[in-house]
Every structure is written in structure tokens, then in C-alpha cells.
């Protein structure tokens, strides 16, 4: 048979199967991008994440400078340190992206998310829901005899915790905005 067979490659594994040496360390980072508020800019950012197989845990976007047509995109993402570095570099390549900040490593930052919770219930459950909402400093923004809509602002953890508490008390639908974040001071 062919002499080639005897000399076939040292490994049957393809280079594509090789494991990333850093694959075990997964970090969560909050990135903020200042972008031109032009048509398609969000699609470029999202397309980058889907096209290159990066994760998006949360994404918020809104115009922050009407005259300058600038928006701020806040992305919470997870990945190995090398992947996080790639994500930042790739975001920086997008032409309408002006700045990329990694709030997780650029000193202290504050993160807030707003959530709306509809909680159904009567009697003790209703009283307990209202009491817990008070502890969490949630506002009642809608009320019927059988339900409340609470508005809560806080870190994602706080919102998760409130949702867990409301669940046995008749939690219905939740709407969350995703994280908005800003570095402290400066």
C-alpha cells in the first residue's frame, strides 16, 4: 500500500479540535462602547458576537448625545481572558465604534438594571409581597385588587434575589432592561 499511510500525521486530531489552554477560566465582564448612532450599528455589534461565537449575557443601548448622534452600548459578556481581549479588539475594529471600555478592569464602576415585576395574589401573600417590596425599595407602579406591578432598580443580583422572593408569592411576568454601567468618580 501507499507509503504515505505509514507516515500519516502524528495525530488524527485536526488543529480545530485543539483545546484552548485557558478554556477553564471563564470571566464575566461589562463592556461599554461609545458608538455613532447610525443605522445598523447595533446589528454590527450583535453580528460580531454571533459571527465569532461570543456570548452576550445582557445588552442595553440608547442614545446619550443627540447632537453628536452618539449612543452607548453596554454589554455583559463571558469568556476566557483571551476571548475577552479579542472581543474588545474586535469591537474596536468596527468603524462607527469610537471607544471601548472594560468597566470590569478599569477601576470601580456602578451597574444598575431596572426591572418590572407583576405579582398576583390576595390576602397574606399580597401583604407579604408589599412588605418585601418595601424592604427592596421597589415602587408600586400599577395596582389592581389582585395584582401589583413593582418597579425595582439595582444590580442584577438584587433583581434576581427579589424575583426569587416573589416567586412563591405569585410572580407573573418580569421585564428587565439589562445592565447600564458607568465607572465611578473621574
Amino acid at each position: 500500500m501507499s507509503a504515505l499511510r505509514l507516515k500519516k500525521g502524528a495525530s488524527k486530531k485536526s488543529a480545530y479540535d485543539l483545546k484552548d489552554p485557558n478554556a477553564d477560566v471563564i470571566e464575566t465582564h461589562t463592556l461599554a462602547c461609545i458608538v455613532d448612532n447610525e443605522a445598523g450599528v447595533l446589528a454590527r455589534v450583535i453580528g460580531l458576537f454571533s459571527g465569532r461565537g461570543y456570548n452576550i449575557d445582557s445588552l442595553t443601548v440608547a442614545e446619550i448625545d443627540k447632537e453628536g448622534h452618539m449612543s452607548r452600548v453596554t454589554i455583559v459578556t463571558t469568556g476566557t481572558p483571551a476571548v475577552i481581549e479579542q472581543i474588545k479588539a474586535q469591537l474596536g475594529r468596527i468603524v462607527p465604534v469610537h471607544e471601548v471600555h472594560d468597566l470590569t478592569v478599569e477601576g470601580d464602576s456602578v451597574e444598575r438594571e431596572l426591572a418590572l415585576f407583576r405579582v398576583h395574589g390576595t390576602g397574606d401573600h399580597r401583604v407579604e409581597a408589599l412588605r418585601l417590596a418595601d424592604i427592596f425599595r421597589a415602587n408600586v407602579v400599577d395596582s389592581t385588587l389582585e395584582s401589583f406591578v413593582f418597579e425595582l432598580t439595582g444590580t442584577p443580583d438584587k433583581i434576581d434575589a427579589f424575583a426569587d422572593l416573589m416567586r412563591p408569592l405569585g410572580l407573573g411576568r418580569i421585564a428587565r432592561t439589562g445592565v447600564a454601567a458607568l465607572s465611578r468618580g473621574k
Binding site: 504515505l4 507516515k7 500519516k8 500525521g9 502524528a10 495525530s11 488524527k12 486530531k13 485536526s14 488543529a15 479540535d17 485543539l18
Partner: peptide
């Protein structure tokens, strides 16, 4: 070959 290093050339 794919999956081989530089010093294992066919």
C-alpha cells in the same frame, strides 16, 4: 498534516 507541528512534515 493538519494537527501536526512544524517539525513533523510529510
Amino acid at each position: 498534516p493538519s494537527g501536526a507541528p512544524h517539525n513533523e512534515m510529510l
